[in-house]
């Protein structure tokens, strides 16, 4: 079973592992969520758990979602997220049940989805890592350009998909197969090895890795 948890990126630091090596880590706060409702095959065409994250006041709730919480008699939640599960697994959960950080263990492989930092309208050096132009030998007004964009009479147009300046960042990015370096269940803190998309304080989604856990976790 693979549960998608909404979490919060806190920031980066480094820790020492058992061998005494330095490991760069991202600190992630995974607060417990609760099962708000279930989607079933008979009614909705698929089986899924609907999880609610972060408590909010009732008056902050969307009207369209308020019925959901009234029916289950739960405290209103800010975000809802579905996790597809098998039918047998669906029965193991009750509405209102809490799911917390304890679904993760140290050294588990996880995938993280986030929204990358928006970089606005960027040039090709930043956006695609192009080398730019020579700074010397008489170069003027041509330093951060991408060079030629194609030939002349043939093909007589610029190919589609040519890498050019434009909006960069602010898109959904998924990082696959990163490992959990340490875990602190008391503080709801996950330390994952390496970087994670998005700014500090941004929302991310954490789940077990699709490619590493062939058997359902």
């Amino acid at each position: 079973m693979r549960i998608n948890m909404i979490a919060n990126k806190v920031g980066m630091t480094q820790i020492f592992n058992e061998e005494g090596n330095v490991v760069p880590v991202t600190v992630i706060k995974v607060e417990p969520c609760s099962v708000v409702s279930k989607k079933t095959d008979e009614k909705d065409g698929y089986n899924a758990l609907v999880l609610g994250f972060y408590n909010i006041k009732e008056n902050k709730l969307r009207k369209s979602e308020s019925g959901l919480f009234k029916k289950s008699n739960l405290t209103p939640k800010k975000n809802l997220k579905e996790s597809r599960v098998l039918k047998e697994e669906l029965d193991k959960f009750e509405i209102g049940q809490e799911i917390g950080i304890d679904i993760f263990k140290k050294d588990d492989w996880i995938d993280i989805t986030g929204k990358s930092k928006g970089r606005g309208f960027s040039g090709v050096m930043k956006r695609y890592g192009m080398a730019g132009a020579k700074r010397s030998h008489g170069t003027h007004e041509y330093f951060r350009h991408g060079g030629s964009i194609g030939a002349s009479a043939y093909p007589a147009h610029v190919f589609k998909g040519k890498k050019m300046p434009g909006r960069y960042g602010g898109t959904r990015v998924k990082i696959q197969n990163i490992s959990i370096a340490a875990i602190n269940p008391d503080k709801n803190i996950l330390l994952v090895k390496g970087a994670v998309p998005g700014p500090n304080g941004g929302y991310i989604t954490v789940s077990h890795a699709v490619k590493k856990h062939a058997v359902k976790v």
């Binding site: 980066m12 630091t13 820790i15 020492f16 602190n184 803190i189």
Partner: peptide, 12 residues
């Protein structure tokens, strides 16, 4: 104290 400092403190 923020969370990152708290984590770092364990290793100092």
């Amino acid at each position: 104290m923020n969370i990152v400092n708290e984590i770092e403190k364990e290793y100092i």
